[in-house]
């Protein structure tokens, strides 16, 4: 039996911490963007009441959940939400989510490489991806955002300055 060994691959604590932080920040930024950006607000308005979605990595990787209450208010529900989301976007591995959040792979590329699965209504999932794309543009500088999304939008100066500042501030402060 000298040729046999058992391997316990273990985890990646630093990667997990980074991803948890990014998901936390993006979650709060979505909540903020729903108040500030008309496009994000419209996307959420078109979604049903009490809608929620989650984004995270498989195998108990970091997660985040976003919900919309009956009054249409969008709220970041944290990582361990007890709510069963209507749309669950799962990235197949923590490594793949790390690629996504280090902007080495955009969401469409990750999708085309079969790195994500979606449970729930596909049109709602598409809306969630559009929201994520808008928020990424707000959070990231243009050269990095270009790597993360398919097409960089042509926005007004107000969006690029005031809205961006408001969303970042609200995401940090959390209201």
């Amino acid at each position: 039996m000298g040729n046999f060994a058992t391997l316990q691959p273990g985890g990646r604590p630093l990667v997990r911490f980074y991803l948890a932080f990014m998901l936390w920040f993006v979650g709060r930024a979505i909540q903020a963007a729903a108040l500030v950006d008309p496009n994000v607000r419209k996307e959420f308005n078109d979604l049903p009441d009490d809608f929620s979605f989650s984004l995270g990595a498989a195998f108990n990787g970091p997660q985040m959940a976003i919900g919309k209450d009956s009054n249409g208010k969008v709220k970041y529900l944290g990582k361990n939400s007890n709510i069963v989301p209507q749309v669950k976007i799962t990235i197949k591995s923590m490594e793949a989510l790390f690629l996504l959040f280090t902007f080495r792979e955009s969401t469409p590329v990750a999708n085309s490489r079969e790195r994500m699965t979606v449970e729930g209504n596909l049109s709602h999932a598409c809306a969630c991806v559009r929201i994520l794309d808008i928020v990424q543009v707000y959070l990231l500088p243009k050269p990095i955002a270009k790597l993360a999304i398919k097409r960089y939008p042509k926005w007004s100066l107000k969006k690029h300055t005031i809205n961006r500042l408001l969303i970042n501030l609200r995401a940090i402060i959390g209201f």
Binding site: N3, A5, L7, P9, V15, G61
Partner: peptide
């Protein structure tokens, strides 16, 4: 290549057996 495979299975909570004989 064992290290590469081990890295790919990190965070998967799987235990691997490896026989190299």
């Amino acid at each position: 290549y064992t290290k590469t495979i081990e890295n790919a299975f990190k965070c998967s909570e799987m235990t691997l057996g490896i026989y190299n004989g």
